[in-house]
Design a binder for these strands. Structure first.
Lengths: 127, 127
DNA sequence: CAAATACATGAACACATGCTCATGTATTTG
DNA sequence: CAAATACATGAGCATGTGTTCATGTATTTG
C-alpha cells in the first residue's frame, strides 16, 4: 500500500463495501472478483487466436462445413476440427449434421457483435 | 472443399473480390487476412488474463500506483509490474511518475468500453 | 459388405505465457 | 553519502496451447 491512501481493505473485492469508493464510473460495477476474472479470461482466450478469429470471420458471412473452412484457411481438417471443438465448448458456434458433413454457424448475433466491436476498435486506434 | 459449392478461390482472403459475396453484414468487412487475425489475436490475448482483467477493473474506477494495485490483488509488486508492462505495450494503460511512485490509468475510454462490453456480454449469456 | 468420405479425438511435441527470484535503477530520507 | 523505498527487468521454471500424426466413428457409394 501507499501508506498515504488508507482505502478500504487489502483484499477480497467481492466482499463488497463500496463505501467511500463512489465508483467514479457507474457502469464499471466495481473490481473483478478472482472467479469472474477467470471466467472472463477463459472466454476471451477462445477469441484470442488467429485461426479461431478467421473461422469466426468466415462464419460471420455464411454457414460452412468443416472441409470448406479448412480449405479456406489452408489448414488441415484435423486442426480446424480441434478449433471448432473449442468454439463449441465456448458456445460461440452451433452445428447441424447433413449426411456426413457438419455445417457450422455462429451461435447468435452476440458473437458477431462482439467480434465486430473488437475488430472496429482495432482498426480505429491505428494511431 | 465440398465439391458442390465452387465459391471464389481457396485462399488469400485479402485479395478482395467481394464480387458476389455482397458481405451479408456491411461492418463484417469479409474474412480476416492472416496478418490482421494475428494482430487481433495479440490484442485479445492481452485482455485474456485474469490478473490483467482485474487490473483493468481497478483502473476503471481510479488511478493507482503499482504497490496499491499489487496489494489490492494480493500479488507481488514484481508480478504486477510485469503485467503492467504488457498493458503498456498494448497501449491499454498510461502512466505518470510522481516521486518514486508510478500511477497508472486506462489509456482512454476505448479500453473501458471494450472491457465493459465483454463483461456485460458474459453476464447476460449465463444461460 | 468393402472402400471412400467427412469429421472427431487422443497423444505428443514445439512453443508461448505467467509467476518467482534475484538484481538493477531512480528517488527519497536520515 | 548510505539506507530505504518504489518500480522495472532478465532468467528460469511450471504450466498451458496449437498443430501434426495416427486412429476411430458415422455415413455414403460401388
Amino acid at each position: 500500500m501507499t501508506h498515504l491512501s488508507p482505502t478500504s481493505g487489502p483484499d477480497s473485492p467481492e466482499e463488497g463495501l463500496c463505501s467511500e469508493r463512489h465508483a467514479a464510473n457507474p457502469a464499471a460495477a466495481g473490481p473483478l472478483a478472482v472467479t469472474e476474472a477467470q471466467r472472463m479470461a477463459e472466454f476471451l482466450n477462445v477469441l484470442a487466436d488467429p485461426t479461431r478469429l478467421r473461422l469466426i470471420s468466415l462464419l460471420a458471412a455464411e454457414e460452412y462445413c468443416v472441409c470448406d473452412l479448412a480449405s479456406n484457411l489452408g489448414m488441415t481438417d484435423s486442426a480446424i476440427s480441434h478449433q471448432l471443438r473449442a468454439l463449441r465448448a465456448a458456445r460461440l458456434v452451433t452445428y447441424r449434421k447433413v449426411g456426413r458433413q457438419v455445417f457450422y454457424q455462429l451461435h447468435d448475433h452476440h458473437v458477431l457483435e462482439l467480434y465486430q466491436t473488437v475488430r472496429e476498435h482495432l482498426n480505429e486506434e491505428s494511431a
